[in-house]
Design a protein around this nucleic acid. Sequence first.
DNA 1: TCTCACACCTTTGAAGTGG
DNA 2: CCACTTCAAAGGTGTGAGA
Length: 731
Amino acid sequence: MNLPMRDPVIPGTSMAYHPFLPHRAPDFAMSAVLGHQPPFFPALALPPNGAAALSLPGALAKPIMDQLVGAAETGIPFSSLGHQAAAHLRPLKTLEPEEEVEDDPKVHLEAKELWEQFHKRGTEMVITKSGRRMFPPFKVRCTGLDKKAKYILLMDIVAADDCRYKFHNSRWMVAGKADPEMPKRMYIHPDSPATGEQWMSKVVTFHKLKLTNNISDKHGFTILNSMHKYQPRFHIVRANDILKLPYSTFRTYVFPETEFIAVTAYQNDKITQLKIDNNPFAKGFRDTGNGRREKRKQLTLQSMRVYDERQKKENPTSDESSNEQTAFKCFAQSSCPAVPAVGTSSLKDLCPSEGDSDADSKEDPLLEGNESGKISTTTAATPAPASSAATAGDDPRDKGGSPSKSHFFPGDSAGSRSRERTEKAPPDSRHSPATISSSTRGGSLSGEELKSPLRDGPKVDENRLLGKEPFTPLTVQTDSTAHLSQGHLQNLGFPPALAGQQFFNPLGNGHPLLLHPGQFAMGGAFSGMAAGMGPLLATVSGASAGVSGLDNTVMATAAAQGLSGASAAALPFHLQQHVLASQGLAMSPFGSLFPYPYTYMAAAAAASSAASSSVHRHPFLSAVRPRLRYSPYPLPVPLSDGSSLLTTALPGLAAGSGEGKAGGLSASPGSVPLDSASDLTSRSSTLSSGSVSLSPKLGADKEAATSELQNIQRLVSGLDPKQDRSRSGSP
DNA sequence: TCTCACACCTTTGAAGTGG
DNA sequence: CCACTTCAAAGGTGTGAGA
């Protein structure tokens, strides 16, 4: 019997999955069937305007539908919808993309160079119980957004495959099947919502996002499994209020080079070195510093002297220099087996550093062993450079060919870094524009690039930061363990009429959706209710003024409305999103299509002609059929940049999707051409967001829905520790 | 493989100082 | 009152010992 398999992330995909959509369909299918995994599935709901009907996993149908009735007057007797009925859901009316496709978001990964180096050396990302930031920090630059419209930017991290890894013989190797997946959490950028103009004016950084392996984490950190591979995803949602998040369109972007393996302790010295060299907080460990590293070196030198002396005794003829080299070589090889030893007396060479990265990467064991070689290939030829370069131009400090490292931490002493860079940086990376970010006042990561613009902006959303940066990021917890039934796959088709249909009712086994309270980032009495809305919002920054100050009454009401965790019902969650232009189509290892939502597949199929079908790194997939991939990087030609996958696939939507073209954003990185065909191939084709934006037309129904959402919002505020406490006392 | 205490570092903002 | 400097606290890092 086939075991549930994780849906691997589609490399080069700009929109692989809807964060709230099952992106591990097989898992759902199996778990649902076997019932061994609480089908924690993000709440779903019909858009208020009923623009598109969606199917829900059978398990969710009942509980969710009940909630939907009041939220969206779609006319569908949700309560009567069983899993089978859900399967019959159809778009209530023709999609009208032109109403919302006013933008054509393009996203470019910042600090791409560093990410690539990071990827070349391995893909380790440290996670700790108390939470650890991502390094390199996930930063992106957005273009093509509607300047006036407000957007919410989110990020989440999903399992990249279904394997557990181990670092053996200096390389990452599959060590078995993955452990049960951790509860998913969606990190909402603290500056959300903000206008497109604001987002585009700065680099959007997610450095506040923290990773942890603490499954019971209450801070809202992203929970990951150690020794498992993950893929960060970036989402753009056009919504002027977090409350509307559920009703909005999600555009998802995946950057292959950001894939990583979570570890509790560094395994690969190369990664350690890379981070030490680039992270200001680790400055104390740099070779040039006076920190432990220095001491360590001294110790090393001492030991080497001893070794040297021994050599002399054993080999009286050898001269000092040669001995020294020998000693170093030994050291290098022993400490960093994966790195070719360099016969130099420089201490720097004792440890692998960027200097040997190039040659290294080519035969980097890791790349061979981690099935991610595909990514490494993009290092020197990614399209990003150009865009990044443009980006870099924004920050004067980045000019002058300063090492990319400094891009990340402007505050860091450029001098030392520059020097290091000169010595270590690989040629191919030096010109890289990765000259990023650090557009803030001398500040580095914490600069929160987006902040200033927001503050200075006309009127920053009041719901957001109140002058101070939020402590705990707003997060939406989702879980994709529950998904579509494979059985339905056989029925999948791509009738244009269903273009807007996002979901299929999968399985419909009638089991209620179970939301594990522990999956929420809040505790106490709130947990129960949290269970109901967990998928929507797990935690909210205390600074998110808009959601603070809730009262228990409302919560109680909400609970009474069926949001209680007891019922394990998922909160209505509109997934009006659409054909994320880059939704990938994949073949399951079982020989059938991955049960992605229609549109996803349709989109993928549509794009197949334009997108190069590169072999997905996933062994199963690659073995079966090439997987379509869409990269955030725009396609050079044939395919109109603004054209959407859907357009191709769904003629009916073509008009609307095509217009979104990056409009006036001349400087838009989105226009950055791919560096090379090879890159194109490696990453698969690119298609920028061609998603059919179907923002909800919140009409009269809006109030009802909003009202409910406000309740949610209030619940959300309960994430604040203080409120948690107070709340725990209430019934 | 994980956890923890630790030293080292950056960042941040309050307090102090001088014009 | 403002601008600048100083200082301490908070927080981020990798290390290394121990479990």
